[in-house]
Structures are given as structure tokens and as C-alpha cells.
């Protein structure tokens, strides 16, 4: 049995023209889109954070352990700060990655700098996430004068 000519695959004349079949995926495109999407969210998250922590009341003078305790007993601020931490770390790390790629032309230099960057990313995100989820606003044996009012309700 032989194949009939009609069974041969003939490319459609309307096939989209591709100069080069891509083998590397669209990583840089997604990173570019992510910078814009996360940037918009970060404007809301960080402006809110700065307003509450620096503008309301006595501003920076209000910030102490009790202030943080009062905020992080609320799931609202836990989610807010967690989202801010993750988005800002991805956004910032990706930005610095771009800058390293632009200016560090030697392979070794670029490799070392990016390794340090990713290490800082992993440590900071892990530490920050752990702190938000394991925070104890009213630790036993602590000086009551340093705790949030919510500890005495």
C-alpha cells in the first residue's frame, strides 16, 4: 500500500510566517508584563502603607512593637503586608536583574551578582513571610507597657 498524494501535508498558504521557531519561551515578555501589572498594585499598597505609617497621628513616632502588634492582629493588614512583600520583592528583584544584565558584561561577574540577588530574594521573602504568619502580638513574659491594647481586652 502506498500513500496517496492527497495524504501529504501541504502547508496552508495562510500559515503565519515565523522567522525563527522560538525555543526559549516568552519569559522576558511575561516579566515585562509583570513589571507593569505589579507596579500598578504596588502604587496602591505602598501609598496606603506610607500614609498609615508616616502620615496618620504622630507618624513615624507612633511606630513601635505595640503598633505592629495592633496592625498584624488584623487579617486585613496581614494580607496587605504579605502581598506588598511578595510583589515588591519580585518587582524589585526583576528590576535589579535587568540592570545587572545591562551593565555586567562578563559572564562570571553577571553570574555572581545574580546569584547574590536571588539569594537575597529567597532569604528576604522567606523571612518576611515567616514573620507575618508566626508573629505573636502578645508574647508571654513581655513588659505589658510595650504591648498593644488588644492584648488586654
Amino acid at each position: 500500500m502506498t500513500t496517496t498524494p492527497s495524504a501529504q501535508v501541504i502547508p496552508s498558504p495562510r500559515d503565519p510566517y515565523a522567522r525563527r521557531k522560538t525555543t526559549r519561551g516568552n519569559y522576558e515578555l511575561y516579566s515585562w508584563v509583570f513589571m507593569r501589572a505589579s507596579g500598578v498594585l504596588l502604587i496602591v499598597l505602598i501609598f496606603g502603607h506610607l500614609f498609615v505609617n508616616l502620615m496618620v497621628g504622630e507618624g513615624v513616632h507612633r511606630i513601635d512593637f505595640a503598633f505592629v502588634g495592633g496592625k498584624w492582629t488584623s487579617p486585613f493588614w496581614q494580607v496587605w503586608d504579605l502581598l506588598m512583600l511578595w510583589l515588591a520583592m519580585f518587582h524589585g528583584t526583576n528590576g535589579v536583574r535587568t540592570i545587572i544584565n545591562d551593565y555586567a558584561s562578563r559572564d562570571l561577574t553577571r553570574g555572581i551578582l545574580k546569584t547574590l540577588l536571588y539569594l537575597a530574594f529567597v532569604i528576604t521573602v522567606a523571612l518576611g513571610t515567616l514573620v507575618i504568619f508566626t508573629f505573636e502580638p502578645c508574647p508571654a513574659n513581655a513588659d505589658p507597657a510595650l504591648l498593644a491594647s488588644i492584648c488586654f481586652e
Binding site: D64, F65, A66, V68, G69, L85, A88, M89, G92, T93, G95, V96, I99, A120, T124, L127, G128, L130, V131, T134, F135, E136, P139, A142, D143, L146, L147
Partner: peptide, 26 residues
């Protein structure tokens, strides 16, 4: 952008002191 990124690293570290003790954080 770079300035803000390095402050962010420091800021997560200083905030993490709430897990050490109220005194250390203050």
C-alpha cells in the same frame, strides 16, 4: 528603583525583629 530595593531588604530585616522581642524591635 535600586535605592528602594535596598531599603526594602533592610526594612524586612528590621521588621523581623518583632519575632525577637518587643525591646529589640523598639
Amino acid at each position: 528603583g535600586v535605592l528602594i530595593f535596598f531599603f526594602l531588604l533592610v526594612h524586612v530585616l528590621d521588621t523581623s525583629l518583632v519575632r525577637v522581642s518587643p525591646e529589640a524591635y523598639n
